[in-house]
Amino acid sequence: MSYQFDFAALLPYWPEFAMGMWLTLQLSAVATVLGFVVGTLCAIGRADGPPAVKWAVAAYVEIIRNTPLLVQIFLVYFGIATLGVHVSANMAAVAALVVNVGAYTSEIVRAGLESVHKAQLEAADCLGLSRAQTYWHVILRPAVERVYPALTSQYVLLMLASSITSQISAEELTAVANRVQSDTFRSFETYIVVGLLYLLLSFVVRVAFWLFGMGVFARRRKLGTAL
């Protein structure tokens, strides 16, 4: 085996790799925020909603968890087009990722909600807090804090899984890689570089989550212990 590595051939493409990374981060960030909102609302709906809502959330979660992400992306992309709405590939990619990660988020947050003892709700009720105030101040914060490590893993996974949106030609990092390797015929080198760039992105995402957690969870910042 005498393969001659030639990474230099990729050098001219660094601005495109950088743009790809940037778009990957953007897609992931938007999908993370929206997916968290969707997932949390679903978790609350499933825990506390009327039967029809519980049933709808359960069906949504099971469908998403038991079908491939790639199929979901195609369904969203072509589904939106069929409705006559014109959206960019990037928008469709974000929508598909939100639908996907929202389902996983709702299961994680549900575990967090269930970890909050009923006595806490009773105490909030007896202090006169409304249902919404109780959710916001007494339930959600400790619930999310407890499942924060699981959420972090899920959103790192989301960032990595966003590579699949290259299949509907969202111009993220993997799409850039596909193009570069067909231009340079340096496939192995290209994907080695892209793999390293994803490692770097994962590190960035984890650090961002850690910093955000330190900002939001004051008790953890001060005491350094799990809730």
Binding site: A119, Q120, E122, A123, A124, C126, L127, G128, L129, S130, Q133, H137, V138, R141, P142, E145, F217, R219, L227
Partner: peptide, 25 residues
């Protein structure tokens, strides 16, 4: 009402525990 198991909110400081209901309600 005060309960046997205290039922303080573990993620809030003592002061925040007390301030919550007066600010909310």
């Amino acid at each position: 009402i005060v309960f046997q198991s205290y039922n303080l909110f573990p993620h809030l400081t003592v002061e925040q525990n007390i301030m919550l209901a007066p600010t909310c309600v």
